[in-house]
Nucleic acid binder design. Structure first.
Length: 228
DNA sequence: AACCAGGACGTGA
DNA sequence: TCACGTCATGGT
């Protein structure tokens, strides 16, 4: 079987195992508690047009920075703090006192740098107005690296950019698709070469990889799961 | 009680 | 380029 078909087979298998993941998770803006709306898992019910407005886009962007090397549950607490400060808007976030912002970000870890990163991306978002940023422009923002840039493009702007994280490298080097020390772009190019250029597929595949890794790739030795 | 989490940056080879 | 130290809270 060709490499392309194998990667597609793995995708089908993961989808069949776990179902649609509905990323990117958005907060329940109407409700009062930090519970997410949508499907039973809390995420969007197969609605790939989300996010649908500027505020939701900005929420995805904040989350992509808050969750850097941090569990989503922790990032979510910080997001909820920001919402309670009415700071899920670039202007209001930039008006927060630094100490207030840091306290809100604290539960997500790395709060000193992430606070600055959030201010940086807020300024960038304001200057963008309603334009779609390029990958290069995003990478020029201090605090936005490869994965965060691709997450923003894929989940906030519906651009077909495959997101690679540590889990992706862990699983697919274990399965023999890539070397352990492959670069970000090597892995990204592999997926983009093998998969149809589809935003929903890119979105689901990355989310399914995370779900699978959480179950079977937390600690060594990794147990071989039959994915092909 | 170590170890890891949906990384990025600065530094020095 | 690339390996390594640093940043930090919260859950297992």
């Amino acid at each position: 079987m060709t490499e392309e078909n194998q990667l597609i087979q793995v995708y089908r298998k993961l989808y069949q195992l776990y179902g649609p993941q509905g990323w990117w998770p958005l907060m329940d803006w109407e409700g009062k508690n930090p519970r997410k709306s949508g499907s039973s898992r809390g995420y969007h019910p197969l609605n790939y047009s989300l996010p649908e407005n500027s505020r939701q886009r900005f929420e995805v962007i904040l989350g992509s920075i808050l969750t850097q090397n941090t569990a989503w549950t922790s990032a979510e607490k910080a997001l909820w703090n920001l919402k309670n400060l009415d700071a899920v808007h670039p202007q209001s976030l930039l008006q927060l006192e630094t100490e207030i912002l840091k306290e809100a970000v604290r539960p997500a870890g790395f709060f000193n740098q992430k606070s600055v990163y959030l201010q940086n991306i807020s300024r960038f978002f304001l200057e963008l107005e309603d334009n779609v940023p390029s990958r290069k422009e995003l990478l020029e923002v201090k605090g936005v690296g490869n994965e965060t840039a691709d997450s923003i493009l894929l989940y906030a702007y519906h651009q077909p950019q495959f997101v690679v994280d540590n889990y992706t490298k862990r699983i697919f080097s274990h399965l023999g698709f890539v070397k352990e020390n492959s670069s970000y772009s090597e892995v990204k190019d592999l997926f983009e070469r093998c998969l149809p250029r589809s935003v929903p597929i890119y979105q689901e595949y990355h989310a399914l990889i995370v779900e699978h890794a959480k179950r079977y790739y937390q600690k060594k030795p990794y147990t071989e799961i039959h994915l092909i």
